[in-house]
Design a binder for these strands. Structure first.
Length: 230
DNA sequence: GCGTGATCATTG
DNA sequence: CAATGATCACGC
């Protein structure tokens, strides 16, 4: 995909996102000269990659915010026609190698989760499955920073999950943990393994997991932004 | 193989 | 019909 030059300032980014509200994915694809997939079964990340290209997000697959210069993370958010999030939001992979045998545990504000969620450009897209991909419409993108209450919620969840990981209990974590932040499989398939530690501090191989925001949390973000009451 | 972008598909 | 567990493509 052909990338636009990155925005140099928040104001410049704001100007660009104001111009895409109401456009469809087909509109953006046409401007970038890319083919729209029939469905997203094979290209699940396509909407995100399209928006990255269109808005000039540049971090590639580095574990850093997309707009490196601005410290802003780009997240597309599939929503219903009524404006409710349809999917959870992937944030980052979890390091399963934090262990009680390590001396320097990562703190919340040092975490990759916090770094990515500190400043987010949300791009809601009306994306119900009965709407053909090219006709899916961008709603109103907006820049967001977590408030104190949201940070407390996220930090509490993160610390609880990291404590389980630290004590080698990552195999007992499932998606039901966490009020806003959950840990779910994040891999090509269920056979994939990555480095971790067991509860005795011994190195083992375990399924990779990623941090995801629940739809209840992103729904609250939308509600606050647009004063909706869903 | 790992981290990026996520949505899919089955289950309860 | 929401939620969990599984999966797909790409760059390096």
């Amino acid at each position: 995909m052909n990338f636009s030059p990155p925005p140099k300032t928040i104001e410049e980014l704001q100007q660009r996102i104001d111009l895409i509200a109401g456009l469809t994915l087909g509109d953006l694809a046409q401007e970038l000269n890319v083919v729209v997939p029939e469905n997203l079964q094979v290209e699940k990340g396509w909407p995100g990659q399209l928006l990255e290209a269109y808005l000039g997000a540049s971090a590639g697959n580095l574990p850093e915010p997309d707009f490196q210069l601005l410290g802003v993370e780009l997240k597309t958010l599939p929503i219903s026609r009524e404006g409710k999030p349809l999917e959870t939001t992937f944030v980052s992979v979890a390091q399963l190698t934090q262990s009680i045998t390590q001396s320097k545990p990562v703190t919340w504000r040092e975490s990759s989760i916090y770094k990515k969620l500190r400043h987010v450009l949300w791009v809601p897209i009306i994306a119900e499955r009965d709407i053909p991909v090219p006709l899916r419409q961008i709603a109103t993108p907006f820049l967001w920073q977590m408030d104190e209450q949201q940070e407390t919620t996220l930090q509490t969840d993160w610390e609880e999950l990291m404590e389980l990981i630290t004590f080698g209990h990552h195999d007992k974590i499932n998606a039901t943990h966490g009020e806003a932040l959950q840990l779910r499989p994040k891999a090509a398939d269920s056979s994939v393994r990555t480095q971790a530690f067991n509860q005795n501090g011994q190195p083992i191989q375990a399924p990779p997991k990623g941090f995801y925001l629940r739809t209840s949390f992103t729904k609250q973000i939308l509600n606050k932004q647009f004063q909706l009451n869903l």
